[in-house]
Design a protein around this nucleic acid. Structure first.
Lengths: 151, 151
DNA sequence: CATAATTATATTGTGCGCAATAGGATTTTG
DNA sequence: CAAAATCCTATTGCGCACAATATAATTATG
């Protein structure tokens, strides 16, 4: 076997490891999120709004790297769930401002109670390891983004 | 702000970092895979078959953590593309054996030419860093899998 | 050996994720 | 200030992911 053949082996690939870990995270979060009635993508949209209420679709999309094709239907589902409201901006009617309802705000406390305590247990390592790993993964993502945009 | 409030901040979360990096990988691979006519999930199925030709749907699913709901339609698309054949096992007719066509085998060489050389450039780090990170991410995935199955 | 339980794959339905496109609203420019 | 360009959101179409269910084949059990 030629040496470069290893490159096409699954277990060699960082890409597959990340792909696979993302799915594993999703599976691990699912039972926790079910108790809030949210999917993971809906949950991270809620996190963006819990940090600052009243943001446009574009602002949310920039923070999550998601476009309107993903967010528009997702936000309609969150509206249907009673978590948010969608209103056109008075000054610029192109923009839609997303705001939390009282129920949407209350769900934050449920998340603090049910999800936050479970995370450390899920990932099976201490806070320091987790933070270091997070920073590395973010660096990786940044490198990938750069490679896409600049060549 | 209470200290535990940080737990619900997006930039704190390893989970979001991994989710986001997986999408970034997908975006970075896409132009490379387009030249092979494959999506990333189709590509990793091909990698499994390049390692050993003639595997059942179940075997492929076990290696990729994907179920028949995902694989059945994906494999039909690969068949339509002329990459694989799907044949019922003679001894156990419940099983479907997936085999590479000549075109499917030839695509491996294209992958070696076009994709393998680009990866190091994409991730923006050396092979050693890449390998260490891959091992850490795999450990993370294993921990997550364990947390899902045992509580 | 007939019936029950198990196994392997396929199907259906829902929700992303993203490319391509469309439709208005706003801004730029001649 | 009118036409063109740009900006923001929504829609459509396709391909995953995965839960739930269905179907057919095989194995286990009484």
């Amino acid at each position: 076997m030629k040496p470069q053949d290893n490159v096409l082996k699954l277990e060699q690939q960082l890409c597959f490891a990340v792909y696979s870990a993302a799915h594993a995270f999703n599976r691990a979060y699912k039972p926790l999120l079910d108790s809030l009635g949210l999917t993971y993508p809906q949950y991270i949209v809620m996190m963006v709004l819990w940090e600052r209420n009243g943001q446009t679709v574009k602002e949310i999309g920039a923070k999550l790297d998601l476009d309107s094709g993903t967010l528009s239907p997702l936000l309609k589902r969150l509206e249907k769930l009673g978590m948010i409201t969608r209103t056109r901006d008075e000054n610029d009617e192109r923009q839609v401002v997303i705001s939390l309802t009282e129920q949407g705000k209350a769900t934050r406390r449920q998340a603090l109670d049910k999800i936050a305590p479970a995370i450390g247990h899920l990932v099976g390592c201490g806070v320091d390891d987790m933070n270091e790993m997070r920073d590395r993964v973010i660096k990786l993502k940044t490198a990938l983004d750069g490679a896409v945009n600049h060549d």
